[in-house]
Amino acid sequence: MKKKVSIWIQGGIGGGMFSQGYPAINQLIAGLATQYDIDIYSQLPANPDYIPQGFKFYSLNRKIKSGTLRWIYLFSIFFVKHIKKPYKVLFSFWGYPAGAISVILGLVIRRPSVVYLHGGDSVCIPSIPYGVFCDSKRARICRWAYSRSSRLLTISQYQASRLITYGIAKETDVVPYGIDSSVFTFKEDRFDTPCIRFIHVGNQTPIKDQHTMLEAFSLIVQYIPATLTIVGPDFFEGQLKTWCISLGIENHVKFIEPQPNASLSAYYHCAEIMLHTSLYEAQGFVFAEAAACGTLIAGTRVGMLADMGETCGIIVEPGQSKLLAEKILDILKKPEEIKAKRLAALRWTQKINSDYTIKEISAIFEQVM
Rank of each mutant, 00 (worst) to 15 (best):
I297P: 04
G299Q: 13
Q259P: 00
V286T: 15
C270W: 07
R301L: 05
F287A: 04
G284N: 13
A292H: 11
H252V: 01
G294W: 06
P260V: 02
K254C: 05
Y268P: 01
P258C: 10
A292D: 14
Q283K: 04
A271E: 12
R301F: 03
L264G: 00
M274T: 13
A282Y: 05
E272Y: 04
F255D: 09
L279M: 14
E272I: 01
N251A: 08
A282T: 09
Y267W: 14
T277D: 01
V253I: 08
G294H: 00
E289C: 00
A271C: 11
A288P: 07
H269E: 10
P260I: 07
I297A: 00
Y268T: 00
G284T: 15
I297C: 09
I297W: 08
R301H: 15
A288H: 13
V253Y: 06
I256S: 05
A271D: 08
Y280P: 04
A282L: 07
I273T: 06
M274E: 09
S265N: 08
S278D: 09
F255L: 08
C270T: 05
A298V: 11
L275Q: 02
V302E: 11
E257M: 13
Y268D: 05
A266Y: 10
Q259K: 15
A292N: 07
T277K: 00
A292M: 11
A291H: 13
A290K: 03
E281Y: 03
N251G: 02
H252M: 09
A266P: 06
A271W: 09
L296W: 09
A266T: 12
L275S: 01
L275A: 05
A282F: 07
A266N: 12
E250V: 03
V302W: 10
I256L: 13
Y280D: 07
N261Q: 09
E289N: 04
A298F: 14
F285D: 03
K254I: 07
E250M: 05
S278W: 09
M274R: 01
E281F: 02
V253L: 04
E250S: 12
A262N: 12
M274I: 03
G248F: 06
C293E: 13
F255E: 10
E281G: 00
P258W: 12
T277F: 00
F255H: 09
C293Q: 11
A292V: 08
C270Y: 10
A282N: 06
G248S: 06
P260F: 07
G284E: 15
Y267D: 04
H269N: 10
G248N: 00
T295D: 10
A292L: 12
C293H: 06
A262F: 09
Q259W: 06
M274S: 13
F285L: 14
A271K: 05
Y268I: 03
H269L: 08
C270L: 08
A288I: 14
A288N: 15
A298G: 08
T295R: 07
S278G: 10
A292Q: 09
H276M: 13
V286L: 08
T277V: 04
P258D: 10
L296G: 01
F255C: 10
N261P: 12
H269W: 14
A266R: 11
H276D: 02
V302I: 11
C270D: 14
T295K: 02
C270R: 11
G299F: 13
I273R: 01
L296Y: 05
K254P: 03
G294S: 02
A266H: 11
A290T: 01
